[in-house]
Computed example of a mutant assay.
Amino acid sequence: MEFETAAGHEVPKLGLGTWQMDPAVARETVQTALDLGYRHVDTAQAYGNEAAVGAALRESPVDREEVFLTTKVHGMRRSFDSIVASARDSLDRLGVEQVDLLLIHWPNPLADLETVIAALEEARERGWTRSIGVSNFGRDRLARARRLADGEILTDQVLFHPWWPQRELLSYCQDEDVILTAYSPLANGGAIDDRVLAAVGKRHEKTAVQTALRWVTQHENVVTIPMSTSRNHLAENLDIFDFRLSQAEHDRITRPSYYKTGVTMARGMLGL
């Protein structure tokens, strides 16, 4: 496993995302992932599976301190008190005294960003989270959040894959020592049968999926949380740190496309 370090916090480069997992599936999948060697798990209030993720952590022989655990406050939480209270509720559902990272799930245009950041910082001050961050923030909104925060904003969790490389946001994160957490790194399945990824992967005796994940993790200041429920696929996703892409291969894989991104986002929304 490789790690990314920012603001004194070390985060495994590859973790497990649990979006669209019902509680029973999430519980089993997290147990399997921990057994395989995953030490980074991501959940959210909106996913409805925090309790299942927490149960899997308690049932695993892996010590809680070894697992980097993230959850996200529902984006509809707008007031200081509701955000703080919901953070406490997340800890109760997870069955832990502290998470490693607490995010606001998405920017709410009706919410005051200063209030949101202050509430996240209150959760950190109370010891409920080691770090705070944001999700689905663009560069300018992330910069404003960082100006409003007294402490560090550890990460911005966003869509990131070869067809949506987020160059402006990534450059900002790299310059400012902020981690970019990539969700949907396989473009909601779009990477699986991609000919370029397959061709590049073949040279390294890797699959198209593994090649896409290596493309993501070779970026400085980037970690990723692909979602899978299959033991074989979980193991495959983890087996990416024994090779490196050349600069030419990396450039060949990077193909910004509004069309491809739109198609893959639609597939994700429809659960395809």
Rank of each mutant, 00 (worst) to 15 (best):
Ile83Glu: 06
Val116Ala: 04
His204Thr: 10
Gly48Cys: 06
Asp89Lys: 14
Glu205Ile: 01
Leu180Met: 08
Arg255Asn: 09
Thr18Pro: 05
His9Lys: 15
Ile83Leu: 07
Ala7Ser: 15
Trp106Thr: 03
Val209Arg: 10
Glu114Ser: 08
Thr207Ala: 04
Leu14Arg: 12
His250Val: 13
Gly48Leu: 01
Asn237Leu: 11
Tyr259Pro: 00
Ser184Trp: 04
Ile240His: 08
Ala51Ile: 02
Val11Gly: 12
Ala118Val: 09
Gly151Cys: 08
Gln247Asn: 10
Arg88Val: 00
Thr229Met: 00
Arg144Lys: 12
Trp106Asn: 07
Ser135Arg: 04
Ile117His: 07
Val25Ser: 12
Thr5Tyr: 03
Ala85Trp: 07
Asp242Pro: 06
Ser86Phe: 02
Asp239Pro: 07
Val158His: 02
Ser246Ala: 00
Pro107Trp: 03
Arg214Met: 01
Asp193Gln: 08
Arg244Ile: 11
Val11Met: 11
Leu36Ile: 12
Ile153Ala: 03
Ala212Lys: 02
Ala44Trp: 12
Asp150Thr: 15
Gln166Thr: 03
Leu94Asp: 06
Asp251Trp: 01
Ile132Asp: 04
Ala44Pro: 05
Ser228Lys: 03
Gln45Ser: 14
Ala7Cys: 14
Ala199Leu: 02
Gln45Arg: 13
Gly48Gln: 05
Thr211Met: 01
Ser90Phe: 05
Leu159Trp: 05
Tyr172Arg: 01
Gly48Trp: 06
Lys13Tyr: 00
Ala52His: 05
Arg214Asp: 04
Leu197Arg: 03
Met269Pro: 00
Leu120Gln: 01
Ala118Gln: 12
Glu97Trp: 00
Val158Lys: 01
Ile192Cys: 01
Arg195Ile: 03
Gly201Phe: 06
Asn136Ala: 09
Ala56Leu: 11
Asp35Trp: 03
Ala52Ser: 11
Glu28Phe: 10
Val158Thr: 13
Gln166Trp: 00
Gly8Asn: 05
Glu236Arg: 13
Ala24Trp: 01
Ala143Gly: 05
Gly8Pro: 04
Glu10Ala: 14
Ala56Ser: 13
Leu142Val: 11
Gly133Trp: 02
Ala24Met: 06
Pro165Ser: 13
Pro107Cys: 07
Ala198Trp: 10
Tyr38Thr: 12
Val200Met: 09
Glu66Ala: 15
Leu14Ser: 09
Gly8Gln: 05
Ala85Ile: 11
Ser135Asp: 08
Ala235Lys: 15
Gly189Glu: 12
Glu220Asn: 10
Leu110Glu: 15
Ala51Leu: 02
Asn136Gln: 07
Gln174Pro: 12
Phe3Ser: 12
Pro256Tyr: 09
Ala26Val: 08
Ser257Asn: 13
His40Asp: 06
Asn108Pro: 02
Asp194Gly: 07
Ala212His: 07
Asn237Trp: 02
Gln98Cys: 12
